[in-house]
């Protein structure tokens, strides 16, 4: 991500230090991760110490300091999904992808994340891949769904 683009985002938020999180969210959503160079640029432009930016970038779940895989797999582990067996779905996914929540595989195929509630509890347990919801999952179906993503 080049500096001109970052400057544009900062401009959109009027270059105020209080909009730091909003700026980082915009960078994250365009670029899918936060490269160190981008953080440095934001630090200079907003005059916020890099230590503070680093803390924010690691404190909030929406940010990633490493590149993400082609497919983002979100497993809902909200309470409703949990009592309906979400942990078994998560186990199956870990088994199939070989990665843990928060990780991305070496081929950059999948990134696995747990989310706290997708707000479609009627469909629980729920799995979301690249924004598409797969509801009422069983362990067997999870494997079938995952096969559709290359």
């Amino acid at each position: 991500m080049d500096n001109a683009r970052i400057d544009k985002i900062i401009e959109k938020h009027h270059g105020e230090a209080s909009s730091l999180i909003q700026v980082l969210l915009d960078i994250q959503s365009e670029h899918h991760w936060l490269p160190k160079a981008a953080l440095k640029r934001v630090s200079e432009k907003l005059r916020v110490p890099l230590t503070q930016i680093q803390h924010i970038a690691t404190f909030y779940k929406a940010f990633s300091l490493v590149p993400k895989g082609r497919h983002e797999v979100h497993v809902c582990v909200g309470t409703a999904c949990h009592v309906r067996g979400a942990s078994r779905i998560l186990d199956t996914l870990q088994e199939l992808t070989g990665i843990k929540p928060g990780e991305t595989d070496l081929e950059l195929k999948f990134s696995l994340e747990t989310v706290n509630c997708l707000g479609c509890c009627a469909l629980g347990p729920v799995l979301e891949i690249d924004g598409k919801t797969h509801g009422k999952m069983t362990t067997a179906e999870t494997a079938d769904v995952l096969k559709n993503y290359q």
Partner: peptide, 11 residues
Amino acid sequence: EGDPGAYMDRS
């Protein structure tokens, strides 16, 4: 709204 299993505010 962060409680897992609650989504009335969103709605």
